[in-house]
């Protein structure tokens, strides 16, 4: 199946049913949570200091929930009303806005101590109409410039997204740089097909002292497998190797017959030395 961002614009793709499905899928929840924790790690906020964060494309508040648990106060924007409705039902703590990030933000300068965004930027890469303001570079430019001004100096923005090609990464980073951001792309598990994750790690200010963090290397961790898969495999193996005793042996038959007689059932065969014996093969 093709990528969701190629099928329809986000506010239509995430309609009522898709929004519910997305939120209730435990695998989605797991992936979203992992990426949120990783994004928080990359944000590198001062520990034990409460911060005000922005969740760009907060959706149903899956990552916002984690921000709340970690003790941050947050605001979220999303373009899909159905997703926000689910977020309301789940009673998330942040302030929610129905907003198209490609139209830019209206937040005052220096509002946020950090910005995270999980699986959102790829949605900005498709033009919906031929109007000049809906071309991807224009929307990206508007997004990054207003985002840059809304962030405190110094602070970071960590935006995870799914690029289809290196050209897209190139386009996004160049526009971000023009908007005044420093930083670059962090790729986790670059050699893995499934676990590979691309984070755009942007800095505001900091005087060039900030280094782009290293991506996680090595093999993907085991959690790329579906949970409990190993247990299922083990159980399957047990069934194959173990010799199961035949349940219906002579003792079992005698017990059953005895039971029937006690209950007064008619025509229970007599017990003999042949009871429960196997027939000889005919040939």
């Amino acid at each position: 199946m093709s990528r969701p961002e190629l099928q329809a614009p986000p506010e239509i793709y995430y309609g009522d049913t898709e929004a519910k499905k997305y939120t209730q899928n435990t695998r989605n929840q797991q992936i979203q949570a992992d990426m949120t924790y990783r994004a928080l790690e990359l944000l590198n906020l001062t520990p034990d200091q409460p911060a005000f964060l922005l969740d760009v494309g907060c959706g149903s508040g899956l990552s916002g929930e984690i921000l709340g648990e970690e003790g941050y106060i947050w605001a979220g924007v999303d373009i899909a009303p159905s997703m926000l409705e689910v977020a309301l039902e789940r009673e998330v703590e942040g302030d929610l806005f129905l907003q198209d990030i490609g139209q830019g933000f209206g937040f005052r300068p220096g509002s946020f101590d950090g910005v995270i965004s999980i699986s959102v930027l790829q949605w900005l890469l498709n033009a919906e109409t031929s109007h000049p303001t809906s071309s991807p570079p224009h929307r990206l430019n508007r997004f990054f410039t207003t985002l840059h001004s809304a962030m405190r100096n110094p602070s970071r923005a960590v935006l995870q997204f799914y690029p289809t090609s290196d050209d897209q990464i190139q386009l996004i980073t160049s526009i971000a740089q023009k908007a005044g951001f420093g930083g670059g792309v962090v790729v986790d598990y670059p050699n893995s097909k499934k676990a590979r994750k691309v984070f755009l790690c942007l800095f505001v200010g900091g005087g060039g002292g900030q280094q782009v963090p290293q991506g996680l290397q090595g093999e993907e961790e085991d959690d790329s497998k579906v949970r409990f898969e190993r247990r299922r495999e083990r159980e399957r193996a047990k069934v194959k190797t173990g010799k199961r005793k035949n349940v219906k042996d002579r003792d079992w038959i005698l017990k059953k017959k005895e039971l029937y007689r006690r209950r007064g059932k008619e025509g229970v065969p007599l017990d003999s030395k042949f009871t429960g014996r196997k027939r000889k093969p005919l040939f």
Partner: peptide
């Protein structure tokens, strides 16, 4: 509405 402000702009209002 429902505690969520609608911040969407019409096409001619986009900067």
């Amino acid at each position: 509405s429902n505690g969520i402000p609608n911040m969407l702009l019409a096409e001619h209002e986009i900067g």
